[in-house]
Write a protein that binds this DNA or RNA. Sequence first.
DNA 1: CATGAATGAGAATTCATTCAT
DNA 2: CATGAATGAATTCTCATTCAT
Lengths: 196, 196, 196, 196
Amino acid sequence: MAKKTGEKFEAILDAAVKVIAQNGYHNSQVTKIAREARVADGTIYLYFENKDDILVSLFHTRMDEFATKVKQKIDLVDTPEEKLYQLIYMHFKIFALDHNLAIVTQIEIRQSNRRIRNDIGKSLKKYHRLIEELVEFGVQKGKFHDGIDVRLMRQMIFGILDETVSSWVMKDMKYDLLELVDPIYFLIANGIERKS
Amino acid sequence: MAKKTGEKFEAILDAAVKVIAQNGYHNSQVTKIAREARVADGTIYLYFENKDDILVSLFHTRMDEFATKVKQKIDLVDTPEEKLYQLIYMHFKIFALDHNLAIVTQIEIRQSNRRIRNDIGKSLKKYHRLIEELVEFGVQKGKFHDGIDVRLMRQMIFGILDETVSSWVMKDMKYDLLELVDPIYFLIANGIERKS
Amino acid sequence: MAKKTGEKFEAILDAAVKVIAQNGYHNSQVTKIAREARVADGTIYLYFENKDDILVSLFHTRMDEFATKVKQKIDLVDTPEEKLYQLIYMHFKIFALDHNLAIVTQIEIRQSNRRIRNDIGKSLKKYHRLIEELVEFGVQKGKFHDGIDVRLMRQMIFGILDETVSSWVMKDMKYDLLELVDPIYFLIANGIERKS
Amino acid sequence: MAKKTGEKFEAILDAAVKVIAQNGYHNSQVTKIAREARVADGTIYLYFENKDDILVSLFHTRMDEFATKVKQKIDLVDTPEEKLYQLIYMHFKIFALDHNLAIVTQIEIRQSNRRIRNDIGKSLKKYHRLIEELVEFGVQKGKFHDGIDVRLMRQMIFGILDETVSSWVMKDMKYDLLELVDPIYFLIANGIERKS
DNA sequence: CATGAATGAGAATTCATTCAT
DNA sequence: CATGAATGAATTCTCATTCAT
């Protein structure tokens, strides 16, 4: 019933990111989003089932684009190490370039209810899979440790990146996220222990 | 004004964990918590400023206990490697023993508003500091890489553990979290790359 | 402004009866009626002033036809008693043949607002008059009690028939309405008391 | 959950009758009823499940009282004829004394949705049963025609009374309803036909 | 004549908090 | 200290109607 494409569909999603980033999730009423998108309240419901659907669609489209951008960059390099480096770089780069997106995805949208968070989880599947393929490639090339669960490696990598970005947002993005690319890469690659 | 000790204070916190774990954050009204704690609605306000204060207090007391328990265990062993291993073990052990606590801290309470989440951040300070001390100790002993920001190492370690527990809860705690202690330790210690 | 004839005018009225009978008055949106009539929403407003006008027109045309059909049958017989019998028979017959009409006129449309109900009242005028003429004819022929208010007699007759049909519809039209023609005729004719 | 007794319960029902009689069913918002009852909007929901529940409860309590009052009067006389007469008298008397009640029960509440109307039907059961018992008594005493379905007789009697009151209300209660007691009694008792 | 995307006013309900007892 | 009945602000969603095409 709800049309999931079109100029206004995009306008509403853009407005939602902006409004939520500025006002916080719990203070982002439908009316506010509609006004920002320059449409009537009722128009929202021509494009979305309900308010939750805005958030789910928002996260889904943005994370899909996110994964696509990262993949494009990764595909340009050949070695697993380079691919890993580019993954970290792009993950940070995208959020560094779009603070509103960072605020909304790392902080605000996580305040939504269980159902939304579940749907949101699904939107990350593509990105999760991307990381797993990277890991599998590295293991196959003999560059990454084998014998360890791929999903666990992915979880570790994602956990580090996600926590790093969240911390950065919580600290009001006062420092340059991209300066962390190198050290984070080093930690993920070499672990914490020093080999004598 | 609100007295933050006493039998009923504890009863209310216990009730809150139970009610939130069972009903979800957004479906845990003050009345429900009061009923579970076997007190009147108004009594809640003799012990807490407002509803948010319940959540903040809840998180604070639980995370304080959490950090204390982990520290006790860490203090029993001597080497940085052993301490790191015990940290991972205890982090997982505590949540494995208290599923309600896991649900509430990893999932539900994160749906709360910005202010609560900020206060919650503070409650983690003690635990964060604990990890940082562990890292500093390892660096000082020459066992962990030096030259890398300690806070970043802590962030990485915490990010991995947090993401791992969250994933486990999201998967309905269907597998044994403790089986991940060894591989996670290995990944944190050695990183992802294989040294020839 | 609104043209009250034409193929689409009829199609919309037919659609309205069907939609209201199926979905209930409060769940029969203009869009639903338009779709059933295979016209655009806006087209409705070329033929009707507003939504209420659909209902009023619907009731008016249907009740006009109703009165016409009954009159045709009544005119075929001569005595007041026979006319009364045919009135009852036709009243029940028409609804027995068109369940949707019965549902809409006896139940659903009565949920409409005061203004509509007022206009609806007017639509019954013709039928009320028909009954009154029948009564007057009977009194004049010396077959019906005189000295009693004609309007009251009409009200009584109509009240009985209306209540009987409404009860039948409420009972999901599970029994044969026409089996009630004889006993109802008897009651109207002879009253409740037995003369020794 | 909702308390169905108490001072405020009654106050809200009284307010509802007044507000609905004055403003019409579709223009009687919860806020209006609350203000008339001198309680807060939220208080309504301590005593009623939802808005519909107000109407259902209203109709139920009023019709129960209605049946009770009628029964008390009927019980004072002995013959079926006298009982029938008292039934008609009381039915009209109660509405003649409480115009608001008449408006609400005869006109406004019938605009409510199917579910309410169904529950309302149940509330009339007691009164319907009262009439049926009267009819059965008359038949048994040999005063009323036997061989005719009791339910049908009840339906006829109720239909006449209901239609008469509705007509009176629709005509803005401009005439004296009680003047109709005698002729209506005569019609119900003797029917329309004159016996030579 | 016909379309259907867009409009925006309007209302029921929830629930954290208070305060008289 | 404890109670719990009462409060009332705040927000999503529906749907009759319009009007540019």
